[in-house]
Design a protein around this nucleic acid. Structure first.
Lengths: 133, 133
DNA sequence: ATACTTGCAAAACATTTGCAGTGAG
DNA sequence: CTCACTGCAAATGTTTTGCAAGTAT
């Protein structure tokens, strides 16, 4: 049975306030505003526990470390900015992708990630130093 | 300009012989049959170079280390069977997903993975039970 | 009081890099 | 003869774990 500690609350609050998937280090930085002495090990331990409880969802993108977000946003997808690398929720959905699968395949679910420029980074076109592949 | 060394050939041969995505350590083990003194660092360096050249493709599955496989086809997606965990190519594409992103976001690319039952694992009765969530 | 939690440091892993020697062009 | 490539070892970077002290119940 899990206890409700200041650390656990701070980590949950950080994830709730962000409204987007966070990296463990982002969780640490945000949660330290409430619990300055918070350690990274506790963040990892709590993230794992919250995932086991079904409260958190792991968001994995190719070439990136796993991010964590609160469940309950319902079905949604993600958008990663190729300039700042942040990940945002996309609450739209193309729907009915069953017809894309090969004949005889049964599609139960899908995962979609969009890549491009977020609102903040879109104007800066020539300032971008490299190609974050 | 890249040189053709025994190591590079052995790594390419290992990937070609496997015909499935391999982990770096699997590549090392297989390629050592031709070049026993091969080092893991060389495997990683060659894998990265081959990816940069567009000859290899990185295959990432949730909770797994990246695998590498020879490339062959252009833009496509993937279907993972929830029963046998195999990954299949999906050559269809929903297209035009730019409208899904939040206002102000610029979509340049996308990645889509379907989950469900492959032909072999599909329950006998269900002809088309899959529903996109 | 009990035992789950925490913070720190060290460990465990996967991947990258520094460097001197090797070999392809 | 050059300089990219290689193997080794050390360095990174991320996540996990051991342990003594802290704290919710």
């Amino acid at each position: 049975m899990e206890r409700s500690t200041r650390q656990r609350a701070a980590i949950g609050a950080a994830l709730a306030a962000a409204g987007r998937p966070l990296l463990p280090l982002e969780v640490l930085e945000a949660a330290r505003q409430q619990v300055p002495a918070l350690g990274i090990a506790t963040v990892y331990r709590q993230l794992r526990q919250l995932v086991d409880e079904g409260r958190l969802r792991i968001v994995e993108l190719p070439g990136e470390n796993p991010r964590y977000e609160l469940r309950g946003h319902g079905h949604h997808h993600h958008f990663q900015c190729r300039s700042c690398a942040r990940v945002f929720d996309v609450h739209a959905c193309p729907g009915d992708l069953g017809r894309l699968a090969p004949a005889g395949f049964m599609v139960e679910d899908h995962e979609l990630t969009l890549y491009g420029r977020c609102r903040d980074c879109r104007p800066a076109e020539a300032t971008d130093g490299g190609r974050p592949a």
